[in-house]
Amino acid sequence: MDLILFVWRQKGPDEKGLLEQFAAKDISPEMSFLEMLDTVNEGLIKAAKEPIAFDHDCREGICGMCSQVINGVPHGPQEKTTVCQLHMRNFKDGDSIYIEPWRARAFPVIKDLIVDRSALDRIIQAGGYISVHTGGVPDANAVLISKDNADTAMDASECIGCGACVAACPNGSAMLFTAAKVTHLAMLPQGQIEAARRVCIMTEAMMKEGFGNCSNHYECQAACPKGIRVQFIAKLNREFIKAQIKDSGKRNQ
């Protein structure tokens, strides 16, 4: 099939960008979206033109690198699917496709469709860790965890840190990401030592990176390729309230 692409081109972080039109010809419906872009880039290279710069790594939907807003939706039209796992059979011959980078102040564009997502790493560094004893490997099942808690922690840990939540959010907030990390650790006994401090530090770190606040639009959940739910944000809010109560209790002693 033949497609018309409108792709965001931007030479560098401080350059002005614009949408450039490309023709993608003879695309097989079996191709992934990234293979389609590879094909277009081969043509550009043969014509001695600058290929479209885009991010990718695993191409199997687990690394979270393929950050593209396709026709106004982060990761494109198929629910719970990353760009690399999106196939061209989701499009029709003759379609126009708009491809843009994540847009948020905390994610500066490096080039074309590639943005710098390291702000998410710094939120993790601020509080996404637990204290463990050094020494031998602990026995399996030495620490009992209820099935419900284990399931919730597993669901939250599915977050691959791709940043689609930020890209979808009208406020450029990273609350879904932060909430997934906070919930993941708060559900487990190993995460309790820092629980109260973690939620404060990580939300503060989020704001310091220039992300917005959460207005409960829930766009993030709709865009998330891993089905992370806004319920985790409610959990983060509960953790924050608990931390405040604990803190005022300590001061009164």
Binding site: F6, W8, L19, V69, N71, G72, Y98, E100, R103, A104, R105, A106, C169, P170, N171, G172, S173, M207, G210, F211, G212, N213, S215
Partner: peptide, 12 residues
């Protein structure tokens, strides 16, 4: 703050 965190909008 929210508006400042989202400079520029998507073409689509």
């Amino acid at each position: 703050e929210d508006n400042a965190a989202k400079p520029g909008s998507y073409a689509m």
